[in-house]
Design a protein around this nucleic acid. Structure first.
Length: 207
DNA sequence: ATTCTGATTCTCT
DNA sequence: GAGAATCAGAATT
């Protein structure tokens, strides 16, 4: 069994954290069975000085985990049906995190396909934050899980070293504030990456 | 191929 | 009560 990240290795600014997460791996035993995912796309959310962050307007019950120690999983529910997951960074007491947006399933492809039928093909791409959580079996029960503890249901393992040129960046997806911050990062040579949709949608349901 | 819309419920104003 | 760090399927804007 491989060793997870140490908590202090993740106590960094979300922009650095995003960089660190690319190419690292998530091991999830949530639900039945195990799925391993190589992280290919993330977005940084800085908290205090980032208008698009859940923490921009202060601490609430929902965002509490983002203010806690680094290396925890911040899971939230959106659009009435989906879960999204972040890795918490910064130090205890200062909010900051990186949203996990996409990855490639390295092990547990059968289970992944069962959970998300669209996750198919040789690459087993899980593109989109809610597809990613679906494939890993992550839901609200995983909020606050310590990714640096080898006993946790979800762990985060360091990836191999890679050249800086392997990373690209661009605008975040789906946010309505700070739309021009190029705080989405992805692996240039991966096909498991969101296609940027300009502007995104403003509102969900309208009557 | 790209663009639009319905689904569905939680959180904060 | 509005809007949300979205997805999947249908329309073709």
């Amino acid at each position: 069994m491989e060793n997870p990240f140490a908590s202090e290795d993740l106590a960094r600014d979300p922009l650095d954290l995003a960089w660190t997460l690319l190419g690292s791996r998530l091991l999830s035993d949530a639900g039945e069975g195990r799925v391993e995912l190589l992280i290919t796309e993330v977005e940084a959310y800085r908290g205090l000085d980032d208008p698009a962050s859940h923490c921009y307007r202060g601490r609430t019950a929902r965002n509490a985990v983002m203010w806690g120690p680094p290396g925890r999983l911040y899971v939230y529910f959106v659009y009435g049906m989906h879960f999204c997951a972040n890795v918490v960074g910064m130090s205890d007491g200062v909010p900051g995190a990186a949203l996990l947006r996409a990855g490639e399933v390295m092990a547990g492809g059968e289970l992944a396909r069962q959970r998300r039928p669209r996750t198919r093909g040789a690459g087993h791409h899980a593109i989109g934050p809610a597809v990613l959580t679906g494939v890993l079996g992550i839901d609200r029960e995983c909020n606050g899980v310590d990714l640096t503890d080898a006993e946790s249901v979800v762990r985060l393992l360091p990836g191999d070293d890679r050249p800086a040129t392997a990373v690209r960046s661009g605008p975040r997806v789906g946010v309505s504030a700070a739309v021009d911050y190029p705080w989405r990062f992805w692996l240039a040579d991966s096909k498991a990456v969101s296609t940027y949709r300009r502007g995104g949608r403003k509102t969900a349901a309208r009557k």
